[in-house]
């Protein structure tokens, strides 16, 4: 199984203001994502999940350590194989669904002749064919999230990074997105999904990365993490209890 993404000893600190002390957000993040795996990325608020994703996408740069994709050194080339959806992004609301996808198709530098077929495919996949000519301003939150997933899928990525894809959605929206994500799992697409919702992670993911105060506490198969527990939630609670005990004793 080939390695899609590998993070080694990644650390990052931010200075809130030039006269203030830097705050260490990531201390030591280590993980490896293998091809064809659906990976859940969990941790409490402020654990550093989004910061790690930003480091992966090179929106910010780690102080130490490194993140590599497909064993490639040229990140712009690697980006051709990555689809990304940030948490609650803004999309140009004056564009229609198809125009929005066309913009991203052009940004990828792909052949204009192939666009129509591919756009139909991804719109079908995210169940938005009926709304393809609607302006994005008329889309519901769930529809916006789905068109976001469509743009991430557009260039046939080998690796999909989704930051909280189900946050802020109503139950119907969540069910729809979950169905889409399940289809990725069936197709053996490599996905990294950050989430707060343990039941979703348990249902969708095969592997797990747990981040706590900027450190990776666990990465591996969910079955390995759960072992003697009935659910991911129960295992996570017990795991957190152990961590807090260790911290307390230290």
């Amino acid at each position: 199984m080939s390695v899609i993404c590998k993070a080694t000893n990644v650390s990052k600190s931010f200075r809130p203001d030039f006269y203030k002390k830097p705050v260490q957000v990531l201390k030591s993040v280590n993980f490896q994502i293998n091809q064809g795996r659906f990976v859940g990325f969990i941790g409490p608020n402020g654990a550093g999940k989004t910061t790690t994703i930003k480091c992966m996408m090179q929106f910010i740069f780690p102080d130490h350590g490194e993140i590599s994709f497909f064993d490639q050194t040229d990140f712009i080339e690697a980006k051709r194989k990555i689809g990304f959806l940030p948490e609650r992004p803004y999309f140009q609301e004056f564009l229609s669904g198809v125009e929005f996808l066309k913009l991203h198709w052009n940004l990828c530098g792909l052949k204009a002749a192939d666009f129509q077929n591919r756009a139909e495919e991804v719109l079908e996949q995210v169940k938005l064919t009926h709304a393809k000519h609607k302006k994005l301003r008329d889309y519901s939150k769930g529809m916006l999230q789905r068109i976001g997933i469509a743009q991430a899928l557009l260039a046939r990525p080998e690796f999909l990074i989704l930051d909280e894809p189900m946050s802020g959605l109503d139950p119907d929206g969540r069910i729809l997105i979950k169905d889409i994500l399940k289809s990725f799992k069936e197709k053996k697409l490599t996905v990294l999904m950050s989430s707060h919702l343990l039941e979703d992670v348990e249902e969708l993911c095969e592997d797990l990365i747990i981040l706590h105060k900027g450190e990776t506490l666990f990465y591996g198969a969910i079955t390995e993490f759960k072992q003697n527990f009935s659910s991911l939630e129960a295992a996570y609670k017990a795991f957190k209890g152990q961590i807090e005990e260790v911290n307390h004793n230290a």
């Binding site: 930003k54 996408m57 929106f59 712009i76 080339e77 980006k79 051709r80 990555i82 689809g83 990304f84 959806l85 940030p86 948490e87 609650r88 992004p89 803004y90 999309f91 140009q92 991203h104 940004l107 990828c108 530098g109 976001g148 743009q151 991430a152």
Partner: peptide, 12 residues
């Protein structure tokens, strides 16, 4: 608005 992130995720 994070438009920058969505666009910068493209190979540019």
């Amino acid at each position: 608005r994070k438009t920058f992130q969505v666009i910068l995720a493209r190979p540019i």
